[in-house]
Design a protein around this nucleic acid. Sequence first.
DNA 1: CGTAGTGTTGAGTCAAGTCAATGGTTGTGG
DNA 2: CCACAACCATTGACTTGACTCAACACTACG
Lengths: 245, 245
Amino acid sequence: MPGPFELLVRNLELRACLSEADRAAIHELKLSERSLEPLTYLVREADRVGQCAILISGFAYRQKITDAGEKQILSILVPGDAVDFQALFTDVTDHSVQMLTRGDVGYVAIDEFESLFMERPNIARAILLAVLAEASVFREWIVNVACRRGKERIAHLLCEIGVRLDAIGLSHNGSYDLPMTQGDLADAVGLSPVHVNRSLKTLEAESFIRRGRGAIHCDNWKGMRELCGFNARYLHLDRLVRETE
Amino acid sequence: MPGPFELLVRNLELRACLSEADRAAIHELKLSERSLEPLTYLVREADRVGQCAILISGFAYRQKITDAGEKQILSILVPGDAVDFQALFTDVTDHSVQMLTRGDVGYVAIDEFESLFMERPNIARAILLAVLAEASVFREWIVNVACRRGKERIAHLLCEIGVRLDAIGLSHNGSYDLPMTQGDLADAVGLSPVHVNRSLKTLEAESFIRRGRGAIHCDNWKGMRELCGFNARYLHLDRLVRETE
DNA sequence: CGTAGTGTTGAGTCAAGTCAATGGTTGTGG
DNA sequence: CCACAACCATTGACTTGACTCAACACTACG
């Protein structure tokens, strides 16, 4: 089980290069760890934040509630993800982050993170790239919700989660644990829970997936990807970075 | 008419503080200016980019095409916006940027911009904040497309553009030039052109807006904002920045 | 003055939503 | 160990927002 700093470093190095000194500086951060229950807020909309959280284990999601009371999930956070780079240098958040499952979170004081950003260009670059990659995921979600039909929309989400979990070693033979209810999925893809249920059943009937108590099995990722036009490029999980060291 | 560097500096200083030296460094960038026709690509998906473009006049949009051939507009760019911070340190883009109107664009070599980022923490911070603000806009677009009905969706887009144009002095008495066809609007909000037409007519019939050859007039922004639950916070246009200089 | 792009309108269809009832599972407390 | 509650998944019946197709009007421009 990798420690919080290993996770963070690994996450940042997905897209950028750090020097030995950079890694050491990260390891010198003061971190307080906490175990959180499902539905706990990591960040609450319109809050001021003094801490920067890193997800160590478990899942979380970004989320926004409209005036009409509708909840929209904006992205899924997996272990290693920094919860809130937006807290750097800004005061007020525009959305919330909530635990999806029970899990552990590490907190670092914002100021320390900010110092790292201002004093270590490599780390600044790594953070920028992480934020850019996140923005790219948001763009793809716009496309997903705006352009695709129910079934394809869900398939796309399942593909994304599959690839991301694979990248951190949390999937096995194309199967992974997905602790989201159908209601959660509905909030993520902008469909009603009833329609999510029907679409999932269709995906299963067409033998794209199998389901079993909170797990997704897929023996045909190729078919899934073709079904929904999934192209992992937008995740920027390969280190296509020009070195400037 | 402000020059390209003034526009860029002003844009960056919307959210972060720059020192005199930072501003000077930006003004020393070598910039080549070009005038572009509508539909010209500023960035093309899967391209490698050597230039970083800044929109000087006119409008542009980010855009993605699905396998099924559907076009989705992801955001609108207005004068002063940097077209492609994503080009910094990364090689391949995941979406395209196209001119909406005729307009002028300034090009800076990526390497120069990257040096600025690596050597000037204040500028790095300003760029990070610009990227974070853009990500925030993407999130709101997810909500817009996923949660709101046709009429509200369009109203929300009109509110956003109104506020952003206002911030750069391109609106007058709540009216502004909007050089988007109904087809463009459809691609931006994920509706069919026909439905956009009907929704716009409804908005006009309910006297939220008036329309006249490529312009939007609104005498009742308050009503518009309430109609669609628009809250400008997500645009992060006020400089809510903790000073660290 | 014709052509092409855009805007407008109507009619019919369909994907997805809503409402409502039924089953299953898990967990808890008596 | 059972009864109950709470939550989630499933299914059917019906409604509706939005799409498609198709025709027609307007405007700008060469």
